[in-house]
Write a protein that binds this DNA or RNA. Structure first.
Length: 113
RNA sequence: AGAGACAACCGGAUGGUCGCCGGCUUGCCCCGAGUUUUCCACUGCGUGGAGCUUGGGCCAAGCGGGAGGAAAGUCCGGGCGCCGUAGAGCGAGGGUGGUGGAUAACGUCCACCGGCCGCGAGGCCAGGGAAAGUGCCACAGAAAAGAUACCGCCUGAGGGGCUGUCGGUCGUCGGCUGAAGAAAAUGGAUAGCCGAGAGCCAACAGUCCUUCAGGUAAGGGUGAAAUGGUGCGGUAAGAGCGCACCGCGGGCGAGGUGACUCGCCUGGCAGGGUAAACCCCACCCGGCGCAAGGCCAAACAGAGAGCAGAGCUGGCUCGGCUCGUUACGACUCUCGGGUAGGCUGCUAGAGCUGCGGGGCAACCCGCGGCGUAGAUGAAUGGCUAUCGGCGGUGGGUGUUCCACAAGCGCGAAGACCCACCGCGACAAAACCCGGCUUACAGGUUGUCUCUGGCU
RNA sequence: UACCCCGUGGUGUAAUCGGUAACACUAGGGAUUUUGAUUCCCUCAUUCCAGGUUCAAGUCCUGGCGGGGUAG
């Protein structure tokens, strides 16, 4: 069970982000919006888009760290997809709620599409 | 004890566990380059493999490191880089504005000067020029800038009105005398005297109105601001007209590097405000910025050259099948510029710190010590434990105070201990540095001021 | 990273060289009307905030806050 989060598990280039957005497969709940695109790497990858409307730099860094931590903890449960995650402007997030949102929005994908 | 002023500083601590980023060392694997004076194979000055050296990538382990006082806003100043420029000056545009210093430089800092505020410690000040010129100053007000006109005050002259006094006069009224006519009664004069009061005339005085000439600038409800202020003298009324003090201008002297200060003499007084209005003066500024700049370099397109093979299929270093036959195609190689992308710039720098010296200080000099973040869809985190900080509530212990006297707590104040609850700010590097400004829970230290009490 | 523009009633806009913040719509209240519509009247502004210059600031200057935009 891998719990690490090296650079190979992230989206690093604009072309990769553009590909995920071009697929236009999104789901959302109150806290976050998630775009997904299947890849052939055998493991999921995560990319984050945090708007300035979320808050100042400290609040945005808080969001990104908690989203990365949630992805790190549950990445073995996820299929091999590229994920772009956008937080919605809301109140201060918690790790448990983000883990739950990410798990339901990604793993529950087969039921909706 | 209370209330303040200024300056400096801290910005939770220690662990556990799972992670992230980069550095060094070691190791596995992969890719590239060099080495034939390291070795082996092949027929050759050549090729291939192994070894060695070196560079890069990925993974793993170990060691040590990893946000701030403002990292923020991007308001100034520099370093650094590229471009432009012979040098210098002028112009445009922008900025700064007491003096002296500090500094790489600054709009920053220090010291001093001046003004304003505060009882004070202290605080604030874009603080040059308004007799170089232009503009503006609403409303109100006589007037908002030439003291000109106006009201007002005073003097003289003319006219007029009113009042008073004296005089004159026409005529009226009352009283007395009483002529002519007549004997008298009577009569009552173109007569006289006395008195009354209105009118008219003249003079004088006072007062008012008006016109003219002159003297004035004291005063004129206003206004943010009114042509030096106050007092005394003076005058027809007044006025720096004269005097005293204050303010202002000029000159001289002394002190200071200077801003400026002090003293003396002198001028009777020039001059409103606004330059964060235009402007003038002095000084400063070439432009753009690390997404600068440098290096490597896919793909596509271009140029040049070369060659016979190309496609499909099975298997691994070759074989089979199909198609094609000498070129404007396809393929291969080379070249320049260079996109995507990568590397670099990238952190040792006007560095931090201790001591000594110089300087009032900002700061500078010398010696010693330290090694202190480098991300790039963007690291410095998640969970948890203990301790500590602040506030509140409750409980306990002991202290002080209670006014003119006594008395006391179920009164007040603050101190210590325990338990529970809550709070724990502002804000995150993005080439670097010096400042400024703004945000900030809570806390620490030093110096100083004022008030009250005690000795 | 660099730069530019804008903040005025609830909304959209005005305000000349600095001189007592104006208009339209909306909302609320009132009048007219038997009632409603129409019409008329009234109310609603710390000019984003804080300082400064000035006699006087929406306007000028400085610093913040917020919003929008441009370039690579």
């Amino acid at each position: 069970m891998s719990q690490t989060f090296p650079k190979s598990r992230r989206l690093l280039k604009s072309t990769e982000f553009d590909a995920v957005f071009a697929a236009r497969r999104s789901r959302a709940d109150k806290r976050i919006v998630i775009y997904t695109l299947a890849n052939e790497l055998g493991h999921p990858r995560l990319g984050l888009v945090v708007s300035r409307k979320v808050g100042n730099a400290v609040a945005r860094n808080r969001w990104k760290r908690l989203l990365r931590e949630a992805f790190r903890l549950i990445q073995d449960e996820l299929p091999a997809v590229d994920i772009v995650c956008l937080p919605r402007p809301s109140h201060s997030p918690t790790l448990d709620s983000l883990t739950e949102s990410m798990r339901t929005l990604i793993c529950g994908k087969e039921g909706s599409r």
